[in-house]
Amino acid sequence: MIGSEFVPLSLTPLLIGIFAAVACALPGNFLVLRRQALIGDAISHVVLPGIVVAFLATGVISSWPMMLGAAGAAIVAVVLIEAIRRLGRIEPGAAMGVVFTSMFAGGVLLLELSDTSNVHLDVEHALFGNLESLIWLDATGWASLLDREALLGLPVELPRMAATLLAVAVFILLFWRPLKLSTFDEGFARTLGIRTGLLGLALVIAAAVAAVAAFDAVGSIIVIAMFICPPAAARMMTNRLEHQIAWSVVFATASAIAGYVLAGYGPLWFGGQDAVSAAGMIATVSGVILALAAGFGPCRTRSGAPQGG
């Protein structure tokens, strides 16, 4: 696979996949520990109405308005969930279910009602993404990495995803101590003067940013899988948050690489001709990793003690 076609055809989707997976897995660690794992699920559903509204408002398929629309929808959804939970005194799970299904339905309806037949915007694309199409046509081989002309032809998703990953990582690094404290002991964090409510909201917004950027490149199914599976698998491996995050990055990267390779080349090994969905395969591989961790991880049980120790 490291032939001359690797760089133009596979390098960029592979890198974008890895960046997206890690950018989602990082905040996912905290979301899983805070029992807010399904926020990622909710966000990835409401992204659809966001981009549809952005498209209707601007009339063009271009990245920035759509990302802004998606981010706006994510924030609206988070606020709505919180409002319905408080106003109606409904448990958070049900409030989330009400909000994201309704917003998703609204998005589908808008999409059907508006004239989008001539543009590439449909529900399946939003769900599955199109990782395989993010190819780097200007590249001819590894030498292109040093070629200024060719680098200009990189798909825009690559630098954007890299920037998102950097932003999420910087956020977590900057707020490491307060995040850790408020995740494990919210009451104690509050007595230290940490504004836990604000911090929780910031975490959700960081997750939403990662989700929206990743969604643009790889579709929403990967987003949900990467928010939950690598951190959950990492949780089975260790009792220390630092190690857990390191494990989750390893797992996310491994899922992205293995998933992409299996999707692209796996069918050929079995005698098929065409590749299968890379996004779906990455999610599947992350599930396999989670299953292995749940079966054999040293810290998989609730008591948290290493087995046989």
């Binding site: 899983v32 794992a37 399904l38 769900l127 939950i228 949780r235 996004a279 999610a283 599947t284 992350s286």
Partner: peptide
């Protein structure tokens, strides 16, 4: 040790991903 919400998210995304494949 996973809570129910993480389990829900894991099952949901992995099965859906497999379905898409």
């Amino acid at each position: 040790r996973l809570a129910e919400d993480a389990a829900i998210g894991a099952v949901l995304s992995v099965f859906f991903g497999l379905g898409i494949v």
